[in-house]
Design a protein around this nucleic acid. Structure first.
Lengths: 215, 215
DNA sequence: CCTTGTGAATATGTTCACAGCA
DNA sequence: TGCTGTGAACATATTCACAAGG
């Protein structure tokens, strides 16, 4: 049966979160292929490159529509566009960053967000010495101004790049200010209400996963 | 049947990788509880804090031994020690970092590695202006010296914090130098031989996962 | 009581294998 | 031919539910 629109979320039969989690990786890879001048690819090529099976890629995509052509494969530009629509990154999302230390600085100065759908619109810190400094695309703002800036920018996503011992308090205030998605770089599991989604980045978790196998 | 030693990998019936991946999170949480002065906890408390079921925590731990007491729960210090042995972080692993940009600088200056089993022992860059700069615990070294430094330090783990377009070339040279575990911050899937393990950190992957649900 | 550790039951995720179409 | 999209088969992961022990 054909999908009604090119980007239907099908009958929206609750697509598994693990599938959603792979789509950004597919998108990233497809855009690299496009940048390399490629026009079409196949689930097999993609799978070999990503170290997963071609069947998995086809099954994942099949949740959202029919994007390929039998005998040919996928048009890369078309599939990129479809994935961008599915992931809602066919626009640019404002992000607020909390913490103007060296990690916050690295995030603020990273030039790769915009092309993938994100823009840092505010950086907050409580340290008076940091407030007012230029960092990446903006000036460091007083964390006390959080609520106002969130209203102004309509941001829904925040990044926490503060020391562990203040991360939970910062999270509480972000949620209080109306943010619903948090990417937390502090090595702590945050306690948040059910409507808030938190994802984590902690390099040590990866290192420890690796050392298990290093015996 | 009782385990022979307190940290057996049981009969080593190939423990699922997804289980290994959760152990560092358990360890991180337990150490936070220990720092808060707590002595014992239960799978239920831990599960509530982490947002997973108590059964999952018990089942995960059961792969490695019997660490709890019925009616009481787990002694936090003891369980931390056991997890550290299982994950091989009852020692400090040397890590080499490639890329002395703002991200490399943030990683190098992060003070939280040592207590969790890791130490940056070298930072490399190809930019003559960066070489010789003090960054965190070491001085930036010429990437050309990679092989010598890896031999000296016996490092097995590397972090890639370089621009996307050089990441694959850097990875090839790391592998050539004998490294077997790579944490890659560049937004690209690396092609590596089967004996090399790569893990990835890309904040945009997380953002795009979030925006799917932000509609 | 309370909480662990664990088989059995359930739920979820992945792969197979092939019809169908360019 | 070559490749997609997809049910059916298989594999893996999670939860249930309870015996056993402090």
């Amino acid at each position: 049966m054909k999908a009604i629109s090119t980007v239907s979320k099908r009958n929206s039969k609750e697509i598994p979160d693990i599938v959603i989690g792979r789509l950004p990786v597919y998108l990233r890879t497809l855009r690299l292929l496009a940048d390399a001048g490629r026009d079409v690819t196949s689930s097999q090529e993609l799978g070999e490159h990503l170290g997963i099976s071609s069947a998995q890629i086809r099954k994942d995509l099949s949740h959202f529509g029919e994007f390929g052509k039998q005998g040919t494969g996928y048009n890369i530009t078309f599939l990129c566009n479809q994935l961008q629509k599915i992931l809602n990154v066919d626009r640019v999302w404002p992000i607020v960053l909390v913490g103007a230390g060296s990690l916050g600085n690295a995030i603020a100065n990273y030039a790769g967000f915009e092309s993938r759908g994100f823009r840092i619109v505010a950086i907050f810190d409580e340290d008076k010495k940091k407030i007012g400094l230029e960092m990446g695309p903006v000036f460091v703002d007083d964390f006390a101004n959080l609520k106002i800036r969130v209203e102004e920018t309509r941001a829904q996503i925040a990044v926490i790049a503060v020391p562990t011992h203040v991360a939970q308090r910062v999270a509480d205030q972000l949620i209080e200010a109306g943010l619903t998605s948090i990417l937390c770089y502090a090595p702590i599991t945050l306690t948040v209400p059910p409507h808030v989604r938190v994802e984590y980045i902690d390099p040590v978790i990866h290192f420890q996963h690796m050392t298990y196998y290093l015996g």
